[in-house]
Nucleic acid binder design. Structure first.
Lengths: 214, 214
DNA sequence: TGTAATGTTTACCAACCGGTCAAATTATCT
DNA sequence: AGATAATTTGACCGGTTGGTAAACATTACA
């Protein structure tokens, strides 16, 4: 008799690792489009190219799949904010934060939509992460920004709303991709739109915050 | 024998009007949280306080409910952008556009989330509206902005990305409300956050666009 | 008041949903 | 090779889903 997910063996098989990877990849495809409630295990199974019971052999429930996916993606997702450095100078830090966030919107749109779906639907599965680790990280970086403002390096402004505005403007290009493409039309909806967006946003934030130019 | 939705009578009964209103109100509650696929007719029926077959007497399918809801809300939703006036001066136009959008995020968060859910999931039901009326409206307003830039009233910038950034920053407070509250903490997540956001965003956009002060 | 149209509900259906089970298949190790 | 553990699948289950049929109740109107 098989015991799911190698509760005995401690070490994970190559097969286990590969299959779990394969499942989470498919789950990301599906969850990021339809949200938790709107997705079905069958859909994920089909995308993953394996049978439903086989999926459930590696993840006991649909919720476990979602949980594993969120956990895996959350850390990576906050990487750019974590890299936000108090020691650096405001201009380059803000510039590179915007760039990094835009790159993530371009390269990992599914991850962005996964969170967007989750938060939009009331964040029933990640409330703790938001109120705990996320809030702590933002609090820390907000302090950095506040210090810059006090030192006259940037204009005085609410650091939380500054962070929100960078989040929203950059993630917009992943989450509302269809709308962006529709509005820009066929001609302008190539990959170049990310460069255009970067230029616009850097200008907006650097000038808007009256970042002191060295 | 009853014929659904008065295909014969042409004129809608008071009851019809009232019930359809009641249903769409409930549907907005449910769809805005769970998206189309994640919502069930039973949920809507319960919120509306009527039986499922009764709902289906007024709207033949779940899709018809969603369609009617989108159609009704779309017009209102674009009102602020429509009000954006070429004749006005850039500063007050941009200021009031931001204010209006923020007010909508505050007063009609369900409507915002309804669209967010829809677009996030690939806009399967409103693709035509995005590529048609929405694009046309944005094209028109983009021209206004471009003219302002040419006249030196604001800095030269991509008008489309400017509009996107106003959309995303303002709607963020409706769509990602849970996250905003979580990060701001209990103390700062009262209604005052909209005032704070307005102050920040006006400052950001007015300074960031180097709007000529008269 | 009678009656036809409109509105509402109960009972129901077939398809789908998340998840289980046991049997079959495959990989691993000696 | 043979034994054992890990993996995979088809068949299935109870509950839910979108939607229907038909009987019942209410309203509008002559």
């Amino acid at each position: 008799m098989a015991i799911p997910r190698a509760a005995k063996t401690q070490r994970r098989t190559r097969i286990q690792e590969a299959k779990e990877e394969q499942i989470l990849e498919a789950a990301l495809d599906v969850f990021s489009v339809s949200g938790f409630r709107g997705s079905t295990i069958d859909q994920i199974a089909e995308v993953a190219g394996m049978s439903k019971p086989n999926l459930l052999y590696y993840f006991r429930t649909k919720e476990a799949m979602h949980r594993a996916l969120i956990d895996r993606v959350l850390f990576t997702w906050l990487e750019p904010l974590r890299a936000f450095d108090a020691a650096g100078n405001p201009e380059s830090e803000i510039r590179s934060y915007i760039r990094r966030k835009l790159e993530m919107a371009r390269d990992f749109p599914r991850e962005s939509r996964l969170f967007a779906n989750e938060v939009l639907q009331g964040a029933p599965h990640i409330e703790d992460e938001l109120k705990g680790p996320l809030k702590a990280l933002v609090d820390e970086k907000a302090d950095v920004i506040r210090t810059w403002a006090k030192e006259g390096k940037i204009v005085k402004c609410d650091p939380y709303h500054l962070i929100f505005s960078i989040w929203s403007t950059t993630q917009h290009y992943a989450d509302f991709d269809v709308q962006v493409r529709a509005v820009l039309g066929q001609d302008n909806s190539g990959e170049g739109r990310f460069e255009d967006a970067a230029r616009f946003l850097e200008q907006l934030f650097i000038d808007g915050l009256r970042v002191a130019q060295p």
